[in-house]
Design a protein around this nucleic acid. Structure first.
Lengths: 290, 290
DNA sequence: AAATTCATCTGACAATGGTCTGATAATCAT
DNA sequence: ATGATTATCAGACCATTGTCAGATGAATTT
């Protein structure tokens, strides 16, 4: 371990802590203590169950209750018992609360906006942020099954095809809006999954149904999230889903120009088979019996 | 401004804030409130004047005084009046204080260490951190005149030659330890500057003395700090120093494969001249009269 | 020499965040 | 039905942090 490497991390940490402090100050400028602001923001971000907020912010139940009461007294939040279990309570923003939340959002967004505008290479900056956020939050990646027309799914697929176009010089011509394959990756024929890191999509993978066998399609992991074994976790999910759908065999095609992918499939117990389609791009074909 | 870009920044911010909170918690584990720990760390990092600490941590003078007293009572810190102005006070760590500071350092370092070890691409992670820290702290870059044998100067020069070796396929053979040019970039013949961002070297530039004229050498800015106009600030300093040393003309050589550099010199008022040395690498030559 | 300015300190006080104990009401297990 | 468990709430309490006015002693200005 290099000494200057530690210096670099420590410097990063200090800078970013200071930045966070500045934002906290600007939040305080709205005349509300930070505790209340944090709860309001959690609710605004869609964390509505009291227990979930407490967990997210790491608060004691007594303190949580008082903060919630404070927001209610201000008329920013209202709470109702959960329909299925009246012990749990659901918090939601009133109109005034929504307005306050928006004001907080504006403070953050303005700061973010200015940071990007003042930087000579905003794209590199964003990539760097993704990389770091993924590294720090690598235990927090969740998976969600979505429709292929979900906006986050489309974002992943766009990234995926962009990357293919970059790596294969022949290019790719895909019109996602009327993608003929998309419908076969929707239940009950197939399925489509995305991986989310704190709400940001960082990967996708599809299972296309062909009756009694399934085909793995469009496995993609964002560059910032590579090395975190997301692909393996995707494949676990795909296999489980294929099993549920009554498929006994999985197949997939890939390209020898992607040696990491080929090596991974071998490691996960796939066996190479003969070409099973006439797609011009792939040149390696795999199969796995469940 | 793209909406998902804002999402990405916000996600980054949340992740990093959470990370900072975790470190604060581990600091609290040493049984001392955060305020005291922060003051102790500031002193350990070399911020010794009471006013400077107050400024750095953004504290009220009353609170500052009390925290300092607390550390003194614990026997971790001692204060003395400043020799030139007995109103100001200088804080310093006692042996026990140094030991405590080291313990805090260990907590941070261990965390940093583990982060790097668990990541598939530590180098990319560090580069990303540098980029972000430079972007966030772009107003905090300071310049320092140092000897060319200073360890930070050598680090910059190593980076510089590595980069040249990468950009010019012919390669570079420089032995920094017995670099014949280094001594002519030391006073009184010349000078050498480095740029520091929160303690991390992010650039360098040398002025080599040739009697009545000076030569600009080894201007380098770290990739993470490019676009922040550091090169311009270096040149301002070099010109001022050359003037002080009684040099009336500055010259430099560069290469047409570095079009950003060539464009910058033109913008700063340099005029192209004929070759003035027989170095094989450069093919463009500039002069500026002061 | 007196007045002013300055850096720090002290004491009083308020706001905030955090912890704990026990109350309440809903739900679950037996 | 009874007791145990669960989620939230309320009250008491303390430590920490933040704020303010004025005191002290050193330096600077007039």
């Amino acid at each position: 371990m290099n000494k200057i490497d530690i210096t670099r991390i420590r410097r990063f940490h200090r800078t970013v802590t200071r930045e966070a402090g500045v934002l906290d100050q600007s939040f305080l400028g709205r005349g509300r203590p930070l505790g209340l602001a944090r709860v309001l923001n959690a609710i605004g971000r869609g964390i509505t169950e009291v227990a979930a907020i407490r967990d997210y912010l790491g608060l004691d139940s007594g303190l949580m209750s008082r903060l919630l009461r404070g927001l209610e007294d201000e008329g920013l939040v209202s709470t109702t018992p959960a329909p299925d279990d009246a012990r749990r309570r659901i918090a939601s923003l009133t109109d005034a609360g929504q307005a306050e939340f928006d004001a907080y959002e504006d403070l953050s967004n303005t700061r973010a906006h200015r940071l990007l505008q003042n930087h000579p290479n905003a794209q590199a900056l964003l990539d760097a942020m993704d990389l770091i956020a993924s590294a720090l939050g690598q235990h927090a990646v969740t998976f969600e099954e979505v429709d292929t027309r979900d906006s986050r799914a489309i974002w992943c697929l766009t990234q995926y095809f962009d990357e293919l176009a970059r790596r294969f010089e022949t290019g790719f011509e895909v019109h996602l809006s009327k993608d003929p394959e998309a419908t076969s990756m929707i239940r009950p024929q197939g399925a489509f999954f995305i991986a989310l890191s704190d709400g940001l999509p960082v990967g996708c993978c599809g299972l296309k149904g062909h009756g009694d066998w399934g085909e793995v399609k469009r496995l993609w992991v964002a560059p910032s999230a590579r090395g975190l074994k997301l692909a393996t976790r995707f494949m676990d999910r795909i296999e489980a889903t294929a099993h549920d759908l009554g498929q006994s065999v999985l197949r997939l095609d890939t390209n020898s120009q992607l040696p990491e992918a080929v090596a991974m499939y071998r490691r996960l117990g796939w066996t190479e088979i003969d070409r099973f389609n006439d797609d011009p791009y792939p040149d390696v074909f795999f199969e796995k019996r469940l």
